[in-house]
């Protein structure tokens, strides 16, 4: 590999990390909040797809992409609240409901989204943060979406809130020990409902990024499983928002590896390079995993750890 080629691949991976990571980031932050409260919402893949469709439709009709983002957040909030409300009922399994919500969200998006495959909607603007560098490829890589910056801010905000605010403590107590939370007078179900709804809203914004920024159009295969991968990222990130950010960036960069290598002439083994994000996950999990430490980070009330 020549130096120029290496530089091109590195730039492509930075660009990929920035472009591709945002949906992962919003979905994993949303799921992180939900799981911290003691519930698993596997339905965020459906929320992501519905968010993408709603954002595109609203942007198309109103001409304002930011209205689309708001509508996607509202749609995600509604789906999350529905999940939370159903899980309040006795003897309901949150994992099963999550899978049902995934089908529901995706199905609804495909059903309602049919008329929006053909048209083009106004896209979100981008912030050219790299123009001062004078290197065209870097400038292009740093032409970021405001949603990406919002996602970074959200990761740090969540992290801070979990540690330093009363609301964060309430969510954590609810997630770690429902009995203790009830003894403190916390309405466990209500906390979980709100956490799931807010988590859904975050995933909806992730969907808006897909349809309004990158790749920037609506079709049925738009997500291709990114919502599910992001849910897995939360475990990978050990339920810590700042690690969700790092994991999302890593996945974005690894996803850009396959196309970038082929574009500079390293063409053999592209299936292997395209699988990079998954191989990376396996390696990191195997390298950092431990029978005793893993459970320490997991919220105690989570149905997958109980």
């Amino acid at each position: 590999m020549t130096d120029a080629g290496l530089f091109a691949v590195l730039v492509a991976m930075v660009a990929g990390a920035i472009r591709v990571s945002t949906p992962f980031l919003f979905v994993s932050l949303g799921e992180c909040l939900t799981e911290k409260s003691g519930r698993v919402n596997l339905g965020l893949e459906g929320t992501l797809v519905l968010g993408a469709m709603v954002a595109f439709a609203v942007s198309y009709h109103s001409g304002n992409p930011w209205l689309g983002v708001a509508a996607a957040a509202a749609a995600g909030f509604a789906l999350g609240a529905l999940h939370g409300a159903i899980c309040r009922l006795p003897r309901v399994n949150d994992v099963a409901i999550g899978i049902a919500m995934m089908s529901f969200g995706t199905g609804l998006a495909v059903f309602l989204g049919k008329p929006y495959i053909q048209p083009t909607a106004p896209r979100l603007p981008s912030l050219p943060l790299g123009d001062w560098l004078g290197i065209p490829s870097l400038a292009l890589a740093l032409d970021v979406s405001p949603l990406f910056l919002l996602g970074i801010a959200l990761a740090f905000l969540l992290d801070w809130a979990f540690r330093n605010t009363r609301a964060g403590l309430v969510v954590r107590v609810t997630g770690d020990d429902a009995a203790a939370a009830r003894a403190l007078g916390i309405a466990v179900d209500r906390v979980r409902l709100v956490a799931t709804a807010l988590g859904g809203a975050s995933a909806g914004i992730g969907g808006a990024f897909l349809s309004l920024f990158y790749p920037g159009s609506w079709n049925e295969g738009l997500s291709s499983g990114q919502g599910l991968m992001a849910v897995a990222l939360v475990i990978f990130a050990r339920w810590q928002p700042r690690r969700c950010l790092a994991a999302s960036l890593l996945f974005g960069a690894a996803g850009a590896l396959g196309p970038a290598l082929q574009s500079i002439g390293i063409t053999a083994g592209y299936y292997f390079f395209n699988a990079a994000p998954y191989i990376l996950t396996l390696l990191v999990m195997a390298g950092t995993g431990s029978a005793s430490r893993a459970a320490r980070h997991a919220p105690g009330e989570l149905s997958i750890t109980r």
Partner: peptide, 8 residues
């Protein structure tokens, strides 16, 4: 694969 097609 819309996202990877855009990357390509």
């Amino acid at each position: 694969l819309p996202v990877r097609e855009a990357e390509a």
